[in-house]
Design a protein around this nucleic acid. Structure first.
Lengths: 230, 230
DNA sequence: AAGCTAATGTGTAATGAATACGCAAATTAA
DNA sequence: TTAATTTGCGTATTCATTACACATTAGCTT
């Protein structure tokens, strides 16, 4: 096999977090090169004997100090030959979600020049990263309607209204609170805890937790977690 | 940017065809190397200044002499560092569909060592291509239920029963003929033609054609072409 | 030509899920 | 105490899916 190639393989991670009723994306500030000080996705070149998904996790650790709760391959960007002006780079993008607890940790430690941005207040981005984020956002919206993926964005215990708000903001739609609750509970993947959420006003709500065992059980049986809105 | 990398980027195409009530996959016989005479997917290395999708089309032209009607990126296989025993190869797999007319042309010209295999009668395959085909097959099954993608596997004019059989065989399920017809027609993306299909027995059926203009129109408006089965 | 078989084409009742609400209960703030 | 707010539960209506029935039109057989 004698084919010489001059193409680099990179990975990029679109990490989503949710807090203060907003969807956030993790970005890091470029430290070197032409695009110094521009904001960009976490990412970098893959090492010769490193599986792609491990490369993502390594970059997330090195550049932002986090490990994620959900990771899946999104898309490989390699049709634009000049994505990176310096050389031909094919980038395998991954789509990641983190629980809001970890979220806080990172958001506070700004030392590393890693920061969360609300999805609708993104700064100018390096390369084609704006487009990549749009692709990831659409994927998130799509997945949310037939997979209970939203729990990876919430803390372990949460009031029902937080879950409802998450769906509203990410899908950018209005939901009937009562029907949403009914449908979501009917899946049988939520557990009521003993704790309650104390609030500024109104009746205190019970805290729920996601039961991943029951979820996996149902998923194996081919159950579909479709959730629609009026 | 000083990072030396020794990873090759390849593309592979999973081409599906449909005929004689069976789903088929296009394979080519390896002519060189360790895996000589093994069957494999159409594919090869990407050239330095070539977009990924063009690389796929080039390989399809060079190795099988076809152009496809539908092409979309499937997944990038690069977690198994020894997929290809000779070196590290990251392969971007594409998922393709061809109309049955073209199908016949290829199937007859066996000269190039390109052949169609029924999906459930695949020969031993090179590399991890069996796994890749399984991934593609599942994607096809998934897509079929919410996108009218099946028309890319049929000739321009077809009787309704052919469409129904396509759904049955690919999804491996039984369908109520009457409800399927009703639902499919309700989308408004099919046109009745003047022609009829003459058959061995039974009342002759009208031939239909897929109206891609209407389809694109509805798709833009966010219409969902979901089709379920009992 | 009459009758059988096979496939198409249309209709309709029954079922079940999604939707649109109403309203009581539990808490805080005034 | 009262108003405001949020949770939690219930129910009638609407709409889509499902399960069928049956007439129609052809070829084939006798």
């Amino acid at each position: 096999m004698n084919i010489q190639q001059n193409i680099r393989v990179a990975v990029d991670a679109i990490v989503f977090g949710y807090s203060r009723r907003q969807l956030h994306v993790l970005l890091i500030r470029q430290k070197f090169g032409l695009l110094k000080d521009r904001w960009a996705l976490v990412g970098g070149f893959v090492q010769d004997h490193e599986p792609l998904s491990e490369a993502v996790q390594r970059e997330l650790r090195e550049e932002a100090g986090i490990s994620v709760d959900y990771l899946e391959q999104l898309y490989t960007f390699g049709d634009d030959v000049h994505r990176d002006p310096r050389m031909r780079v094919v980038s395998v993008a991954y789509f990641a979600l983190v629980h809001t607890e970890k979220y806080q940790l990172i958001a506070d430690s700004d030392a590393e020049d890693a920061r969360w941005f609300p999805i609708d207040e993104l700064p100018p981005l390096a390369f084609d990263h704006a487009r990549i984020i749009q692709t990831a956002y659409r994927r998130l919206q799509g997945k949310l309607s037939y997979q209970p993926i939203g729990f990876d964005l919430l803390p372990e215990h949460f009031p029902f209204s937080d879950l409802e708000n998450l769906y509203c903001t990410i899908l950018n739609t209005e939901i009937d609170r009562r029907n949403f609750r009914k449908k979501m509970l009917s899946f049988g993947i939520l557990e009521e805890t003993e704790h309650s959420a104390i609030q500024k006003s109104g009746r205190p709500g019970k805290l729920f937790k996601f039961n991943s065992l029951k979820y996996n059980d149902l998923k194996e049986k081919g159950f579909v977690f479709e959730i629609k809105f009026a």
